[in-house]
């Protein structure tokens, strides 16, 4: 197990390195630089000075080595070049990561139990009216993008009915002001988990071990809870991670709709103004989050269900 985890962590670092390198070189090689728009007003000396200050007069591979050295030795991610000139990138991110993570985890925390509840309900009443209603909602929620949901919620719940603040407001308790964004982010994962659990559970309910459980005298509720549900939950772990990653992606847009000062907003703004030290750092952060999530699932998979042979999961 330990060897396996170490192997996965090594894999993570390789992917991270690939992403980091690709991102760094792409951004340095792309047309336009930090002096776009002001270049005409600067003398050649000034330009050279500025380039020298940010090490941009050196060859690109040397810049990359310096960048890596900065991170490894001093945890120095460089400074923002356009958005907040000369503010350390790490400080900018450190301020914003907590709220983005808060949104992501809260939304996951809401969606998992609701998804499990709906999925169980639909599987138990399979082909009944409840099942059809749930399935209809599932298709609806899976199909409608989270930003359309967010826009709708913002217009009706916040603006027309005035139940919640229209945009993020620091002075209000965090739960009220982030309620709508979290809700908008939760629809898709709820639907995904529901659909998946419904399929898994309805298969388990028809299995032989359920028949055995009923035969040995368990009530339907007991048999469902102890045997069918428990077995069906194992594969559900597998959809939770992609769900979390898609929440993180969705939060990019939802954050900008509700004006939440999270990582999403800063990433988008940094892309639009070509502040590439910020972009680079946030891309690395997103990569790290999703890699960590994948690792978590791989490990928990082995812990929850020892039947699964770790190495060959994909080939099964």
């Amino acid at each position: 197990m330990a060897k396996y985890i170490l192997k996965r962590i090594a894999g993570i670092f390789i992917v991270l390195f690939v992403v980091m390198t690709a991102a760094f070189f792409m951004m340095r090689l792309m047309p336009g630089g930090i002096l776009d728009g002001v270049e005409e007003n600067l003398s050649a000396d000034m330009r050279d000075l500025i380039y020298a200050k940010y090490d941009m007069d050196k060859p690109i591979w040397e810049q990359y080595l310096l960048f890596l050295k900065g991170i490894v030795t001093e945890w120095d991610w460089g400074v923002s070049l356009k958005l907040y000139v000369n503010v350390s990138v790490w400080d900018i991110l450190a301020e914003r990561i907590p709220i983005t993570l808060y949104l992501g985890f809260l939304s996951l925390l809401i969606s998992v139990p609701i998804g499990i509840a709906f999925g169980t309900l639909a599987a138990l009443k399979k082909n009944g009216i409840v099942d059809h209603a749930v399935s209809f909602l599932v298709v609806l929620f899976i199909s409608i993008p989270s930003f359309v949901m967010a826009t709708g919620l913002q217009y009706f719940v916040a603006y027309k009915w005035g139940w919640f603040p229209l945009i993020y407001d620091d002075s209000l308790p965090r739960i009220t002001t982030t309620f709508l964004p979290v809700l908008a982010l939760s629809f898709t994962p709820i639907a995904t988990i529901t659909r998946y659990l419904r399929a898994e559970l309805s298969e388990s309910l028809n299995s032989d071990y359920m028949l055995l459980a009923r035969t040995k005298g368990l009530t339907r509720v007991q048999a469902t809870l102890r045997h069918a549900l428990r077995n069906s939950l194992v594969p559900v772990v597998n959809v939770i991670v992609p769900a979390f990653i898609s929440i993180m992606g969705g939060s990019l847009v939802v954050e900008s709709i509700f004006g939440i000062p999270g990582l999403g907003g800063i990433t988008v703004r940094s892309i639009n103004v070509a502040d590439y030290s910020v972009t680079l750092a946030s891309l690395i952060y997103y990569t790290l989050i999703s890699l960590a999530a994948i690792l978590l699932v791989d490990i928990s998979y082995g812990l929850i269900d020892p039947r699964i042979r770790m190495g060959g999961r994909k080939d099964a």
Binding site: G11, V15, V19, I245, G249, T267, I271, Y276, S290
Partner: peptide, 13 residues
Amino acid sequence: AIPQIVLVTLFIL
């Protein structure tokens, strides 16, 4: 393993 947002952003950049 690379998140889609990252890939897309890189391409657009």
